[in-house]
């Protein structure tokens, strides 16, 4: 493993970690609100959350490229706010990753809140515990497995992110050149040996990280078994 590979690995994990933290901090309150909301717009909101699953990442990246072009309103606003261009730097790929991983983090959270929220809150209400305290002390710990599942899915999904970063990254080492891009370059350069090395390292580290997460999350809903939000809302309270 040479230095550029190490830089790319470090950058990838940094990106995945920040993405997950941001998504959890914003996602938990948002998922709570969505799970409580029973209005007519609910199916549409859930559809919007699921949309990043539909759009191919390169297409998503292409639209970000257009939307945040310095010539556009959004792009110039971004430059005034952040001081730098949206694309070709870390902040850009971070926003991209957040959009890209949103469904993976939000869906398990919404599902868990819908399953456990009502009951837990009824209990705390009977005990005379204020709502805020009830959520913080009883509800959040009770959905811990879902939070860990959400974090794991978001993290793993960001590690493997490729098309989006290919579109808006600009392949800058240490800034936007993540492992998947570095891997792709090796393959294109016919340097299969380095590609195998890097892919192997990524797989090994990811395997260890995920195993540890699952080990410490005994009552988890495993990947592939978490309730999909649309299905859940159909059978849930929302139809009453």
């Amino acid at each position: 493993m040479n230095l550029p590979d190490f830089t790319a690995l470090l950058l990838t994990f940094k990106l995945a970690l920040i993405t997950v933290v941001v998504l959890l901090v914003l996602g938990i309150p948002f998922a709570w609100v969505i799970s409580r909301y029973k209005g007519a717009l609910k199916p549409f909101i859930e559809a919007v959350i699921a949309l990043p699953l539909v759009l191919p990442p390169t297409v998503l990246g292409f639209y970000l490229l257009i939307a945040f072009s310095p010539n556009s309103t959004l792009g110039s606003l971004w430059i005034t706010m952040v001081g730098d261009q949206f694309v070709f730097n870390f902040a850009g790929i971070l926003i991209g990753s957040i959009i890209y991983s949103t469904p993976f983090v939000l869906q398990p959270l919404i599902a868990a809140f819908e399953q456990q929220g009502e009951q837990t809150l009824q209990t705390t209400k009977t005990l005379g515990i204020p709502l805020f305290k009830g959520v913080l002390i009883f509800l959040l710990p009770s959905i811990k497995p879902a939070i860990i599942t959400a974090a794991t899915l978001g993290f793993a999904h960001t590690l493997g992110e490729f098309g989006l970063i290919l579109m808006i990254g600009g392949n800058i080492p240490g800034e936007t050149q993540v492992v998947s891009i570095a891997l792709f370059n090796y393959v294109e350069m016919l340097d299969y040996e380095s590609a195998h090395m890097l892919a192997g390292t990524l797989l090994l580290i990811s395997f260890i990280t995920l195993s540890l997460l699952y080990k410490f999350n005994k009552h988890n809903f495993r990947i592939g078994r978490f309730p999909v939000s649309s299905g859940n809302s159909k059978t849930g309270r929302y139809e009453k």
Binding site: F62, S69, S72, G75, Q85, G170, N171
Partner: peptide
Amino acid sequence: FANNVSQAFQFVDTGN
């Protein structure tokens, strides 16, 4: 660095 000239074209054509 774009992946290929077509992508370099996208970068310049979108004003990035």
